[in-house]
Design a protein around this nucleic acid. Structure first.
Lengths: 143, 143
DNA sequence: CTATATTAGTTCTAGTTAGAACTAAATAGG
DNA sequence: CCTATTTAGTTCTAACTAGAACTAATATAG
């Protein structure tokens, strides 16, 4: 159980990220998953729910509700897919593009306040250490 | 925006942890927050909701519901606090202690499958890199 | 002492979450 | 062709989530 301190640091670091990031997103009238969806759709051709779920790491049942709410807000739209009657493509509306252009740079600036306190070498070190742990976990995760 | 790869790795690593850990907890008929609460209460004197929230990083409004469900399952109990009429103390029931004794070592064993693929030095390196990022984020988080 | 402020916990709201069951459409095998 | 399987997305359920408003009790200030 030598790994418990690491486990706790992983949980508290992620929690700290949420507390640092989410309120800033909220101040722009978006939730964190809504922001992720908008950022994934921006400057990209329209994409299916499946692709969007892979990019944002949001499972499909959850994604339906998030997109529903973004449609109500007129930030994204569903367009039917001529190639495949089962799927649709999702894209930003003009309003969604404006919101992205406003919110994205502001949020990046906010995140930079914390992340840029690490040097490039520290970022690389942290990324690769996380990746090693992630791969170890994925090996023991049912697909 | 040199920090974006690190941001993505942080999100995907945490996600991988959830996918690795939560189904195993679920297989023992507990949710992840329920497991955390039980583990925090075990081998400890009864504690208030406030203390429990600090240990588990669960906010108080959320904690009420989690404890409600653990009370229904007869895993924990609320006992009134003679010292302070506002607060209560929470403790494991005998059944809760049995569940802890069964579930905790099994889950540690499961987690060890992944975490023990890192050497002690790698764990320390990852912990301290995460801590540096966490502290940087906490500096820019409203209390 | 007494008015004020703080604290502990619950309740409420809106949204996310995963996973399972379901529907409809496309693909593959025979 | 045509059946069997797979795939895309929705719906449903149970639970978690944060934060804000609320209640009751304690602590503080004057």
């Amino acid at each position: 159980m030598e790994f418990l301190p690491l486990l706790r640091e992983l949980a508290s670091s992620y929690q700290a990220f949420e507390k640092f990031s989410a309120p800033h997103v909220k101040s722009m009238n978006l939730t964190s998953p809504q922001f992720d969806v908008i950022a994934s759709l921006a400057n990209q051709p329209a994409m299916t729910c499946k692709e969007l779920g892979e990019k944002t790491l949001i499972t499909k049942g959850t994604l339906t509700g998030i997109i529903d709410r973004l449609v109500i807000k007129e930030i994204v739209e569903r367009i039917s897919n001529a190639d495949d009657g089962r799927s649709q493509k999702i894209q930003l509306t003009a309003k969604g593009q404006e919101i992205f252009a406003h919110a994205f740079p502001r949020h990046m600036q906010h995140l930079a306040l914390a992340f840029n306190q690490l040097s490039a070498a520290e970022m690389l070190n942290l990324s690769s250490a996380l990746k090693k742990l992630r791969v170890a976990m994925e090996q023991h995760t049912a697909l």
